[in-house]
Design a protein around this nucleic acid. Structure first.
Length: 908
RNA sequence: GCGCGGUUAGCUCAAUCGGCCAGAGCGCCUGCCUUACAAGCAGGAGGCUUCGGGUUCGAGUCCCGGACCGCGCACCA
């Protein structure tokens, strides 16, 4: 067979080929008509402007592990992919591109601009999808959706109308967060608060009837004073009690404003008197409405001051205005004090400008009823979080949520389906465009200019992608989905809103489980970000190349998608953020190479299949199959509980420790007829066990390292065509093959224990080799003294194993209570003594040193255990089996110690 | 201010229900190009589990309190 088997695994060529094979085979396609049990995941749709980062890599790897695992269990799986139109973000990207060409969106006008965005989307929008494919994500790509698709847009309109009709959407004039750069309203959770070192300015407001007296107010945003319409004090505040109702003259603008009393005011803070600016502060807004104060807006939409700010400031930027205003107040001796003050300032999560609280007319979703239903779904156990602690985080947000501002003053997005009649001012909300006013019949209708928050359309994702509002077979079969896998960062933005919309519009929660995985951090524990330059590009790690990381350049020769995926999965402990650095990712690359080489070894030994009837399975054959099935059991349980890294660790140990370090080494002499009595029947047996084990192993690993396992499986299918395992390899591809179930009858704790004991003996011999500077394969002779005839019988049966792996010149002599032969080193392993014949090499000092060290350790352990046993409370209160076990342990340790002591005496 | 994580080997992390000697990877030291793999093999060193109390026969693990690091929310005139 002329197959090239390079000694170093090169992922690049293989992954590309395997990827093509999968896509051409249509193996990821989901078909509800196939029936069976459904298992569904909808992808958290990445921004269409996005590029794959490590967070995506982890998120999608975990989803892919779940999907591939369930697919291999024969379950009817659907992984729904797609992208999000990301209103503000995408609009910003296209506007930046236009700016480079010296154009602006206003030059183009709305229709032309939206056309430009679509063009941009067609050209660049598939980048992240291709990157996900490169990562190996086994989504049903034939079903790819985009939140601005025709179908999803229909879903958005119907959702809006339905909620409006149910009174859950309303329009109103309220204070919202305004980004003066993006020129749009933002939802509360789209504002990032950052702590800033600012000032607390104390400003004097004189009384109208006695300008020499007045009150001092404290503020961090003095420029808003231009819009003040009152000063508030606490009604209980003795200092101000008798001044309530008195009029003040607001400096600079010279407006008459009253002193009002409101419980809200904190007497401890500042001077206890608060300037009230209803149009520019959420608390003041609420106070203003309580006291029916005027709402005077002093800002323009772009963050400059407007005519209400007065002639001097009109048109000035808000921050320049602050400076100028402070100067003027100083001149007028109205600035009484300036204290440094730490306070938090809201920033736009898209462009990072300082947002302004701003009164404007917007559309809102009434959250209370929706949130209550969502809370109930979790309380009833219909929506569960993993790890469990996120439940509280999620519920506390739902409990305190305020109405959601969903209108955005941008052009890219789902335009609000509301039309206002220019004649009678009636507002009609409808799924189809409205051409005549249903109230007055006028045809003078104007559609609302605003678009909806992107998260509004993403909240429908679990069902809009399946064809809702049509009742499709997909929706019937795959909804609700099984699990949502995401980062904690969008629990509010997205997870909560999907639950609310699913319950309201589908009357069914959109998913049963929510798995919140780690956030990826850099090696110093900081989130990866562009501005810090501490991000690692997953594509560079996969395909190779160079990039800047934390200020230095590093080069990677391409660890492959498998290497990256394995690293991420094994590093990511549930519920724990994960620090990633380029060097840590070598782990997965090394593992994949190890797996490849183990497979390569198997293939080389399958080149000539022995035609003999296989001999009976030997001890080591039974052992590796026992370990294989133990591993199947462990991985199955771990994945069911979302313990991905435990599954990966079990696989790592099985492949590297059990299979490579021990079984492959043990199989070598059995492959070579003649040597050590190996027969063609033995050879055949080993070939069957190797192929069987490798087949199990690639199945188990496939969800984590899909490419290399698919490749190995394909080769194994050819190499093992004449072996029994071929009967289990009839699927067209590993991705569609079913995973072997754990066969409990093959799991043998006794065999695993015996092997552990053999490993101890072998390690003892190796240790002596090291100590004596003997070559690893220098033939040696050993004798083994055991405690009883049963142990002798057990070891006798395995003497070939020991001989093989310890490189002995002949089988060990095994006897019960054998006296120590002369001229040998001795190692005490439990109740076994291993005598290594060394002829002239025995070194009494080295012997003494080794035995002394062991004596010390044993004495320490015995001391501890005896102290426990001599404690009457322990003996009387601890469970009997624990006490019995402890006694047994002491007896064993003492027997071992005696042997060590005897050997020490013999040295004298 | 409230809440949630975390603190274990030089580094990054494990440790199931409280019970054998607290493990692994990387790094370090020794020796090996051993016919799958130097991205490897073999052997080894390395621990007052953040601190102080408590519960318990027994605590890395449970409870109370403190320190430090990180995250979220609220307040922030």
């Amino acid at each position: 067979m002329a197959v090239e088997l390079p000694a170093q695994y090169d992922p690049k060529a293989i992954e590309e080929r395997v990827s093509r094979f999968w896509l051409e085979g249509g193996f990821f396609h989901a078909d509800p008509a196939r029936g069976g049990k459904p298992y569904t995941i909808v992808i958290p749709p990445p921004n269409v402007t996005g590029a794959l980062h490590m967070g995506h890599a982890l998120d999608n790897t975990l989803q892919d592990v779940l999907i591939r695992w369930h697919r291999m269990l024969g379950i009817n799986t659907l992984w729904m992919p797609g992208t999000d139109h990301a209103g503000i973000a995408t609009q910003n990207v296209v506007e930046r591109k236009l700016a480079e060409e010296g154009r602006s969106r206003d030059d183009l006008g709305r229709d032309k601009f939206v056309e430009e965005v679509w063009k941009w989307k067609e050209q660049y929008g598939s980048r992240i999808i291709n990157q996900l494919k490169r990562l190996g994500a086994s989504c049903d790509w034939e079903r790819e959706r985009f939140t601005m698709d025709e179908g999803l847009s229909r879903a958005v309109r119907l959702a809006f109308c339905t909620l409006y009709k149910r009174g859950l959407i309303y329009k109103g004039n309220y204070i919202i967060n305004w980004c003066p750069r993006c020129l749009t309203a933002l939802a509360d959770d789209e504002v990032d608060h950052e702590s800033h070192e600012g000032h607390l300015w104390h400003i004097f407001y004189p009384y109208e009837d006695d300008p020499s007296e007045g009150v001092v107010v404290a503020t961090t945003r003095p420029e808003t004073m231009l819009g003040d319409t009152a000063v508030a004090v606490n009604p209980k505040d003795e200092r101000y009690k008798d001044r309530i109702g008195r009029m003040l003259i607001l400096p600079i603008v010279e407006r008459r404003i009253p002193i009002i009393a409101d419980e809200f005011v904190d007497m401890e803070f500042g001077t206890g008197a608060v300037k009230v600016t209803p149009a520019h502060d959420p608390n003041d807004f609420a106070m203003g409405r309580r006291h029916k104060l005027a709402e005077i807006c002093v800002f323009n939409e772009n963050g400059t001051m407007n005519e209400n700010a007065g002639g001097a400031y009109n048109g000035m930027d808000r921050f320049e205005c602050r400076e100028a205003l402070i100067e003027e107040l100083k001149e007028k001796k109205l600035l009484r004090k300036v204290d440094p003050h730490q306070h938090s300032v809201g920033h736009c999560y898209r462009c990072h400008s300082v947002v302004e609280p701003y009164i404007s007319e917007q559309w809102f979703v009434k959250m209370r009823p929706l949130a209550d239903a969502a809370i109930k779904a979790t309380e009833d156990g219909r929506v569960k979080f993993h790890p469990e602690r996120w439940t509280k985080f999620y519920l506390s947000w739902l409990e305190n949520v305020r109405d959601w501002c969903i209108s955005r003053q941008i052009w890219w997005g789902h335009r609000i389906p509301a039309w206002e009649c220019q004649d009678c001012a009636h507002i009609e909300v409808a799924t189809e465009d409205v051409t005549a006013c249903p109230k007055c019949g006028s045809t003078m209708l104007v559609q609302d200019e605003d678009v909806l928050d992107t998260w509004f359309s993403s909240s429908l994702w679990p069902f809009s992608t399946m064809g809702w509002p049509d009742r499709t077979p997909e929706l019937d079969f795959y909804y609700p989905t099984s699990v949502l896998v995401t980062d904690r960062g969008i629990i509010f933005f997205w997870v909560a809103r999907m639950v609310m919309m699913g319950l309201e519009l589908m009357e069914k929660e959109p998913f049963h489980d929510v798995y919140i995985h780690a956030t990826i951090l850099d090696e110093l524990g900081r989130k990866m970000s562009k501005s810090l330059g501490n991000g690692i590009d997953p594509l560079v790690m996969i395909e190779g190349g160079e990039q800047m990381y934390m200020g230095r350049k590093f080069e990677c020769d391409g660890y492959g998608a498998d290497g990256l995926r394995f690293s991420l999965v094994i590093l990511t402990k549930e519920g724990q953020d994960v620090r990633v650095s380029p060097s840590k990712l070598e782990l997965g690359r090394n593992f994949v190479n190890k797996l490849w080489n183990a497979s390569r070894f198997v293939f080389m030994n399958l080149e000539e299949i022995s035609q003999a009837e296989p001999s009976a399975p030997s001890f080591e054959d039974a052992w590796i199959l026992s370990r294989a099935h133990s591993t199947i059991r462990a991985v199955t349980n771990n994945i069911a509980e979302y313990l991905f890294n435990d599954a990966a660790t079990a696989l790592y140990d099985f492949v590297w420790r059990d299979f490579c370090d021990w079984y492959l080494e043990l199989s070598k002499p059995r492959m070579n007829a003649g040597e050590g009595g190996a027969t063609p029947a033995d050879r055949r047996r080993v070939q069957e066990t190797l192929s069987e084990t490798l087949n199990i192993l690639v199945h188990l690993l496939h969800p984590v390292t899909p490419f290399v396992t698919e490749h190995i499986w394909g080769l194994l299918k050819e190499f093992a065509a004449e072996l029994p395992v071929a009967g289990k390899m009839t699927a067209p591809a590993l991705v569609r093959s079913s995973c072997p179930a754990a066969d409990e009858s093959l799991i043998d704790a006794g065999i695993e224990r015996d092997m552990a004991s053999i490993q101890d003996i072998v390690r003892a011999v190796r240790s002596v080799r090291r100590e004596k500077n003997l070559r690893d394969r220098e033939p040696l002779r050993i004798a083994i003294s055991v405690a009883n005839p049963e142990d002798k019988a057990r070891l006798d049966a395995k003497s070939a194993v020991i001989r093989n792996i310890a490189f002995l010149s002949e089988a060990a002599e095994i006897a019960v209570n054998m006296p120590k032969p002369t001229r040998c080193a001795v190692c005490v392993v439990g109740d076994i003594q291993v005598f290594v014949h060394l002829e002239g090499l025995v070194d009494a000092e080295a012997e003494r040193a080794r035995l002394d060290k062991q004596r010390e350790s044993l004495e320490g352990r015995i001391g501890k255990a005896k102290a426990k046993l001599s404690n009457e409370n322990f003996v009387s209160k601890a469970p009997e089996d624990v006490v019995a076990k402890e006694r047994e342990r002491v007896a064993e340790l003492e027997a071992e110690l005696q042997k060590v002591m005897q050997n020490l005496r013999d040295l004298d």
